[in-house]
């Protein structure tokens, strides 16, 4: 008997915010979406997380800013962005026309800056949520990254939550000794969800000149090389913290994405893969659907956190 072919249900939710599917683009790898309009049907994406925005425009770091490493890349872009005013006036009109959810990644030098940014973005039509990059240095605390001290990460979270009624996702840095403690501190600060991982700090050296390959000396490692580390952290956090987790780190195929979902991620973000395969997100959406059919699962929600451990 022929079974009725019904496309699997790919919808997921984070708090009150629903997504057509769990596939999002990672901040900093997809510009402001328009850059990929010729290569991706943007309307099909679960969400776009735009390039990180600060209160004022930032020029970023001197070149060289990127270097390829085995199955990965290092970047030290230096948070170059157009600033919140131009983001709203120049970039939002296009994004507003996309059917996908729009998540605005924000960054700042101080807790006050995060709050002011959040206020400015709240109420802007077309913005569905904020993602808080806490991997930036806290200028008032000697440049220690917000995301490496649980109390500071929690304070940023509270500050953003107090300034907006948009859903708040806090993006965690993996460059910490205890990712679960950091995640818990942010959850206790009121975050609606967590996204992880941001890049792993690394470096590369030109042996001929004995100079660093990046002008900034060190940079963030991303790409397939980081996937096992990201998956481990997502699993640990999803297993121990009650708010939803968005998995990020080296996802380039549907199989990668499904691994993160099984580990407990409610959604995933595709990052570096957008660079080498601009159509990666659509292929991943289709591939997740195919996987669910193969596995006889009616909904993607049935595989989230379905990891089987032991007997």
């Amino acid at each position: 008997m022929d079974s009725l072919k019904v496309a699997p249900d790919l919808r997921v939710s984070i708090g009150d915010l629903s997504f057509a599917n769990p596939v999002m683009t990672a901040s900093g790898t997809f510009g402001y979406a328009k850059e990929f309009n010729d290569f991706v049907q943007l309307d099909r994406l679960g969400a776009v997380a735009v390039k990180g925005i600060s209160l004022e425009p930032r020029a970023g770091n001197p070149p060289p800013r990127v270097v390829e490493t085995p199955a990965g890349m290092l970047n030290a872009i230096g948070l170059e962005n157009v600033g919140v005013a131009r983001f709203i006036s120049d970039k939002m009109p296009f994004l507003r026309g996309c059917k996908c959810r729009v998540i605005v990644n924000i960054l700042g030098d101080s807790i006050e800056e995060y709050a002011r940014l959040s206020e400015k973005l709240t109420g802007v039509a077309g913005i569905d949520g904020l993602e808080v990059n806490i991997s930036c240095p806290n200028v008032k605390k000697g440049g220690v990254a917000f995301g490496t001290v649980p109390e500071m990460a929690q304070a940023v979270t509270k500050s953003v939550k107090g300034a907006t009624d948009l859903p708040v996702i806090v993006k965690l840095s993996p460059n910490v000794s205890d990712i679960v403690a950091m995640a818990q501190a942010v959850a206790d600060g009121g975050a609606d969800a967590l996204s992880l991982i941001n890049t792993l700090i690394g470096m590369a050296i030109d042996t001929k000149t004995r100079t660093p390959k990046l002008a900034n000396i060190i940079g963030g490692l991303s790409g397939p090389a980081v996937k096992p580390v990201a998956l481990r952290m997502v699993w640990q956090v999803a297993s121990n913290v009650s708010i939803p987790v968005i998995g990020i780190g080296g996802i380039g195929t549907a199989e990668d994405a499904v691994e993160f979902l099984i580990a407990g991620a409610t959604a995933i973000q595709v990052g570096t893969a957008n660079f080498y395969n601009p159509g990666a997100t659509e292929a991943i959406i289709d591939g997740i659907s195919d996987y669910l059919v193969e596995q006889g699962q009616a909904s993607v929600r049935d595989i989230i956190g379905s990891l089987k451990v032991g007997n």
Partner: peptide
């Protein structure tokens, strides 16, 4: 010429110094 990751204006990796001080 520059190293670049995407070629599409997204990675912001292919920076050169402009005469006006902007990249």
């Amino acid at each position: 010429e520059s190293h670049m990751a995407c070629g599409l204006g997204a990675c912001l990796g292919c920076t050169v110094h402009g005469a006006d001080g902007n990249y």
